[in-house]
Structures are given as C-alpha cells and as structure tokens.
Computed example of a mutant assay.
Amino acid sequence: MPDVDARLEALEVKAAYAEDLLDQLNLLVYRQQQTIERLQTELADVRRQVPEGGGAPRSLRDELPPHY
C-alpha cells in the first residue's frame, strides 16, 4: 500500500499545482478583458472626436513652412 499512498500524494500535489495555475490564468484573462474594455471605450471616444467623413489625409508637402 505504500506505493499507492505515494502515487495518491503525487496526484494531489499535481492537482494543487494545476488548480493554482488555473486561478492565475483566470486572473490573467480577467485583467486582459478589463484592458480590452478600456481600450474599446477609448477608441469609441477617439472616433467621436474625429469629424464625419474623416477628411482627406494631409500631406506635409502641401503645407508651407512657417517662414513663407
């Protein structure tokens, strides 16, 4: 029976490590979801600030230097 006890103890240790790892991964996913939601909110704010149609992109070649 000592072999069975040792194997059972090894399985319990592995299960404890697996449970700890799962908790860490769940926390990581939760934090990532919070970050995604924050970034989505910021993107929506930026989109509201951009005028409708967005306008044509400006080229620096079209602008005159300040000394002209």
Rank of each mutant, 00 (worst) to 15 (best):
M1Y: 02
P2S: 02
P2R: 07
D3W: 09
D3Y: 00
D3M: 01
D3V: 05
V4F: 10
V4K: 11
D5F: 00
D5E: 12
A6N: 08
R7L: 11
R7T: 08
L8Y: 00
L8M: 13
A10G: 04
L11H: 10
L11A: 11
L11P: 01
L11S: 11
L11E: 14
E12A: 14
E12S: 15
E12C: 15
E12F: 00
E12G: 12
K14T: 14
A15R: 11
A16W: 09
A16H: 14
Y17C: 09
Y17P: 07
Y17Q: 14
Y17I: 12
A18G: 01
A18L: 05
E19H: 07
E19D: 07
D20F: 10
D20E: 15
D20L: 15
L21I: 15
L21R: 07
L21E: 08
L21V: 14
L22T: 10
L22Q: 07
L22F: 10
L22I: 12
L22W: 08
D23A: 06
D23L: 15
Q24C: 02
Q24P: 02
L25T: 03
L25M: 07
L25W: 13
N26C: 04
N26P: 05
L27Q: 10
L27D: 06
L28Y: 03
R31T: 15
R31N: 13
Q32N: 10
Q32P: 07
Q33M: 11
Q34H: 09
Q34M: 12
Q34W: 05
T35F: 03
T35R: 11
I36W: 03
I36D: 01
L39Q: 13
L39Y: 14
Q40I: 12
Q40M: 11
T41D: 13
T41F: 02
E42Q: 13
L43D: 04
L43T: 01
L43S: 02
L43I: 05
A44F: 01
A44D: 03
D45F: 00
D45M: 08
V46E: 12
V46S: 06
Q49D: 04
V50W: 09
V50T: 09
V50H: 00
V50N: 04
V50P: 00
P51I: 03
P51F: 02
E52A: 07
E52T: 14
E52L: 04
E52I: 00
G53W: 04
G55W: 05
P57I: 11
P57W: 04
S59P: 14
L60K: 13
D62L: 00
D62N: 07
D62T: 08
E63T: 09
E63P: 03
L64T: 05
L64E: 04
L64N: 10
P66G: 01
P66E: 05
P66C: 06
H67T: 15
H67N: 06
Y68D: 11
Y68F: 12
Y68K: 06
